[in-house]
Design a protein around this nucleic acid. Structure first.
Lengths: 219, 219
DNA sequence: TGTACATCAGTGAACGCGCGTTCACTGATGTAC
DNA sequence: TGTACATCAGTGAACGCGCGTTCACTGATGTAC
């Protein structure tokens, strides 16, 4: 990493082409899913020959890793922006939930890349778990700000003993539980909606999502 | 369909080989996911040449269709068996929930084939929605048997106007809502667990699942 | 029971395809004196 | 400012692979008289 602080034109060009490759990769993923990602196909669409991409990525795996990282990063940034706006109390959690849904609908395949069926031969790099815990921290904050008149559940005792994932967040067990259920319940509705499991049923998924959010806010 | 009622030896052999092909297909899916399913690879494992499989399936798509159908069928059968045992009231729903989890853990890729990220180029046949609504009917029955002291939600009015998916089941809106949340909440926990999103966190997913079930039973 | 015929499972060769990846090379862009 | 050199983006050919699928064919199994 010989960093000369000021970017040379070549460096500028490199990062630009890298970004363009990733854009085409996202388009391809949006069209046919992550398992259909092909370096040659991307190169063809960019009007380049296949091997040219190896100047920018060591191989297919590194490209996917980069995309996964970007997806997590994007969600974490979205969350931090919403949390930074600071509506306070229930407003925060509601804002996060709506931001999550908007983020998911904006690019369903990106959502699936992060939260969906694992990509067959691929294993995520370590640092994404760090970014993931960033998003969890934001949810924890929002949950901690809510009035906690929930009745204690048997699960509270268990989660109290396994709170390492909260990364030192000083939250009561009931808050940890609420944060987890926020995650699983919103994901439950979202993933089924994005996978098309509600298409046969005529109701509006947004309203079911809102109903689940209400339930999470009220108790 | 010239049906001679009694099975000829050839018919017997055909159905047996078909079943064996499907078994190998499931093994392959369990190992690398549905998008990696390959007819040639199956043939090789069976000690046959690739084209031989075309005696039994018109092509890759027909095989996948058959597997999807079998998966739905299997879940519907599991549900009906549990419901048939008839524990009554909350016991039914609890039994269904545990059966669902066992069914999912038994073969995660089968669960993903049904409820996970849609297989890229593939579109499910029509009759699976029928089988899917069979499983929903069982859930609806179990929910209808529960005491319904839940407060009305805004969503109830909406779902009342879109109850076609319940296939004529005479359930109150609150029951329809409960059935939907049973589905989405259990799926929320299960899919994240199967995708490995809890592995970093030390808590026991089974307990979170149980906690969600308790919440669904209590109100 | 025995023979002639029809059915059908399975083979091997072949087609065209796209994939990831390597390699030696060309030509343009930037750098040093 | 001008020239010699180094850097590096991109090409085209090639490798080996596995895929789905077709086709003409062989050989075994079942059927009809």
């Amino acid at each position: 990493m010989t960093d000369t602080r000021t970017k040379t034109p070549r460096e500028r060009y490199r990062t630009q082409v890298r970004a363009e490759i990733k854009e085409h990769a996202w388009e391809q993923i949006a069209a046919a899913g992550a398992s259909a990602l092909s370096l040659n196909a991307i190169a063809k669409r960019m009007g380049m020959s296949g091997p040219a991409l190896y100047r920018y990525f060591a191989g297919r795996d590194e490209l996917i890793t980069e995309l996964v990282r970007d997806a997590y990063r994007s969600l974490a940034d979205t969350f931090r922006t919403v949390a930074g706006a600071g509506a306070g109390a229930g407003g925060d959690l509601a804002g996060l939930a709506h931001a999550l849904r908007a983020w998911a609908l904006d690019d369903p395949q990106r959502y699936f890349l992060v939260f969906g069926t694992p990509v067959p031969g691929y294993h995520a790099p370590d640092d994404v778990t760090e970014i993931a815990s960033e998003t969890m921290a934001v949810i924890l904050d929002a949950c901690a700000a809510l009035p906690s008149d929930r009745p204690a559940a048997p699960f509270d005792a268990h989660i109290e003993g396994h709170r390492e994932w909260a990364a030192g967040h000083p939250a009561a067990p009931a808050v940890l539980r609420r944060a987890l259920t926020v995650w699983t319940r919103l994901h439950g509705v979202l993933s089924l909606e994005l996978a098309g499991h509600f298409t046969g049923m005529a109701f509006d998924p947004a309203r079911l999502y809102a109903a689940e959010l209400d339930d999470l806010l009220e108790r």
